[in-house]
Design a protein around this nucleic acid. Sequence first.
RNA 1: GGUCCCAUCGUCUAGCGGUUAGGACACCGGCCUUUCACGUCGGUAACAGGGGUUCAAGUCCCCUUGGGAUCACCA
Length: 465
Amino acid sequence: MSQVRLRFAPSPTGYLHVGGARTALFNWLLARKEKGTFILRIEDTDVARSTQESTDAILEGMTWLGLDWDEGPYYQSERFPVYREFVEKLMAEGKAYKCYCTPEELDRKRELAIAEGRKPKYDGTCRGVEDRPGAPFVVRFRSPEEGETAFDDLIKGRIAFQNEELDDLIIQRTDGTPTYNFTVVIDDATMGITTVIRGDDHINNTPRQIQLYEALGYPVPKFAHVPMILGADKARLSKRHGATSVMAYRDMGYLPEAMVNYLVRLGWSHGDEEIFSLDELTGKFTIEAVGRSAGVFNPDKLLWLNSHYIKTGDPVRLANLLLPFMKERGIDVAGGPDLAAAVRTLQERSHTMLEMADGAVIYYRSDFEYDPKAAAKSFSPAGRELCAELAARLGQVEALDHGVISAVFDGICADRGVKMKDVAQPARFALTGGAPSPGIFEVMEVLGRDETVRRISRALELFGS
RNA sequence: GGUCCCAUCGUCUAGCGGUUAGGACACCGGCCUUUCACGUCGGUAACAGGGGUUCAAGUCCCCUUGGGAUCACCA
């Protein structure tokens, strides 16, 4: 079996954040690139902190980004018997032992060690101790005391640790549940994971995990530790830097392809290229091209990518995505203009779907307010007169399209000896109330002849003529 | 503090011994124009410092400095 097997293994203690999403993306990309298998595993051994809502949120985030999985989701909470079996095996082989030290004792020793300037590592008190039937215990892995444990990280290169730095880690708690460093090894080993791509905050866990693989007799997978994502102050990205939840970006009007494109470029590059679809990436992605240093999350660039994808997106699809945002604004698009047509006029001037929704509102509200300041500026007596003329001429044409509208404006300009803006600005005021809007020809075309004339008439009535 | 990782414009990065150190976001100007945008043209801006290796170092090695991660019966 030479096929690669990768996995994304989040713990369900919150939503899918951008760092996790990027890790998932890299795993997914490598799996697709190598025609391997991508597995989703939920690491919920911490029963107290894990929730179903978090699991659902993570799956929703993955789905939104378009990262589908071939196996799973597996739940560690359903595999406790498996872990127990391996703990028993290690104990039977003398590779693990019961430790009766209490947390209080350990804390005391730890504090003492720090106070005396020594390393706060477990001292091996219970390594040779006899069984104490009935007494509460944890199970510790007996790790080698000498030599070194090293691995060749796919993105960081060779990393070595002296074994004397590592102590005997706990693999099973007093309550009988297994701990992370143990379950992750058992799962990756038994699920046949060939390459582990994860955050580089796991580098320090790696040597002890390797020792576990070796003790268990399983092959050690390859490791690729991807750098962290930082905030603008270079500290690890967190809520205080702004939104970190992937789904929050959807709610703020971001497109999944923008998020994917942004995340993949944060730490990975392909020459000077900036724009990548998921499909292109499955051909171009390589783990070796991932950078070694941490990167700062840059909301401006994400926004730029988002506007790029809005600009080049399919209007019908965008219209569908826009629907919930219109609903949020209390607008039912059913009775108004075609939403896709409205979208087309807004694509090149919207950075987010939120902005697009704000811009689209004007097409569906005929009872909008007129801005008095704009009225003074744009709806002068002369402007009102030109608007009246415009309405009159529009009444004489059939349907509105760009050519017809353009001809009408040109006609007025020629006959009255005025400039385009002399009539366009008053018209914009009459049709939109003075707010920034798409090109006035486009607005009229989307609104249609009748609504256009109706709005002009209303403005003329409101402001006298 | 121990261990580990990292270091090119403000930010994301290209560079894999010989380059006027390139691109992108942001920023600043010009143009376009029917408001706002889009677009377009141009500009400011970087190899952390010090030692080596080499004919030649942003590229290789070492040290310093500066960031970050991790040191749980969390994952």
